[in-house]
């Protein structure tokens, strides 16, 4: 089921926003392949009719009332920012204008 390729690792690194050097990409390709081999045993389980569990405790409908709560002080929030300007977070320029949906 596995046999992860180096090209896939390059794609994953981009999806995950990890700027990895070449040797690291090779290293991860090998390790991910080994790990995927080990976890592939889950596919041995015949579970077609088994429902998936996403939440360990079967609760539903947990809501809050539509009321306002205190906000954080802007100064405290922006003090943690790597860069801020005019009461806003300053971020590097956005080269890709393809704003996601």
């Amino acid at each position: 089921m596995s046999a992860i390729t180096r090209a896939e690792v390059v794609h994953l690194a981009r999806l995950a926003r990890l700027d990895l050097p070449d040797d690291a990409l090779t290293h991860y390709a090998e390790q991910l392949d080994a790990i995927l081999d080990a976890v592939a045993m889950v596919s041995e389980v015949a579970a077609d009719d088994v429902p998936a569990t996403s939440h360990p405790v079967p609760l539903t409908n947990v809501f809050r009332d539509d009321t306002n709560q205190p906000c954080l002080a802007r100064a405290e929030v922006l003090a943690q920012a790597p860069a801020a300007e005019d009461g806003r977070f300053r971020v590097p320029r956005i080269l890709d204008d393809e704003e996601p949906a």
């Binding site: 089921m1 976890v39 889950v42 596919s43 389980v45 579970a47 088994v50 429902p51 998936a52 569990t53």
Partner: peptide
């Protein structure tokens, strides 16, 4: 489906 989906089924088991 093969990985995450199947793992969630194992969770049920």
């Amino acid at each position: 489906d093969a990985y995450y989906g199947q793992a969630q089924k194992v969770r049920t088991l």
